[in-house]
Amino acid sequence: MPAAGAGGAVRRLAWRLRLVFLFAALAALPYLLSYSQQEIAVLLVINVLLVSSYRLLTLTGEWSLGHVVIMGVGAYASALLAKQLGVPVPLSTLLGGGAAAAVAAILSFPLFRMKGFYFLIGSFAAGEIIRLIWKRFTDPFGGPKGLKRIDPFPDIEAGFLSIDFYEPVNYYFLALVVVSASLFVLYRIERSRIGLTFHAIHWQDRLAESVGVDTFRYRTLAFVIASFFAGIAGGLYAHYVGAVNPTRFSVDQMVYVLVWAVVGGTATFHGPILGVVALTVVNEIVLRALGLDTVRPLIYGAILILSVLYLPNGLESLGTRLRARLQHWRGGPAATGSEPA
């Protein structure tokens, strides 16, 4: 890295300030929302983790169709650990993430013999098999109806402090803390040499291999880390909603993750987060207000096609392009004349 001078310090300060503002806004947010919107905000926070963990996997160039099922593995594992074995919920969520990571580690042996399209189909098949197992084996997975009455996050009672996590606002803050910490870890991984190596595998796996990168190990690492955080998201979901079933983790749900990631753009860390936030806002505010619930998949489908066709780098690149456009206009009229100001 070039020596960080005064410019670097200023930039870092600006970055931190922005982060402070962001968290202030996130802390104020639930108080501006209705009860049902608060519930949506909780799910949104969980989905941010889901799509960000998915992005980590895509860094190595592989696109999975099983990520939502992996989230389900975390959800089922955490729910079962709490229900059947009485494991305390915060711990069960962590173990759920571990279970998802373990499933990914096992699956990586067959899956990473494949690449590209074959990996996509292989991950799809693996996910469907897991879902069918949940469906088929009523004990312990509850069959098609899934698991119900999953233990909620325990209330905190400490003297004058009493937090009931049944309240969406409180669960929102809990999820926000867990997800922020997870995102921090994901960000650190990407900015470290591990992230560099993931990118290297994506762009030239043979060249990476030639200087000693064990591409299988690193693909597995990306898959396991991504799955761990998807599992954590699953645990957060299970103990909030209180019920899970195989349909909740079907490929339809995976399509939404794909849409968020593609529409937001996977080139940057914040792209997919932008995608899930923007589409959730569109979904919940615009479509719900217009009473267009039935056409939601159609609109999602159209957005997906249009962004693949016209925004290959996602919404994030739209911002960059708009900025360039704006600059062009500002400095432009004198030079070009014909441009509308």
Partner: peptide
């Protein structure tokens, strides 16, 4: 595996401009 060979000290190059073009 190529990566294991590299770890032992046997490293290859590639024809043309096989590089991480995006880096």
């Amino acid at each position: 595996k190529t990566s294991a060979l590299a770890a032992m000290g046997l490293v290859r190059t590639f024809q043309g401009s096989t590089l991480f073009q995006e880096f």
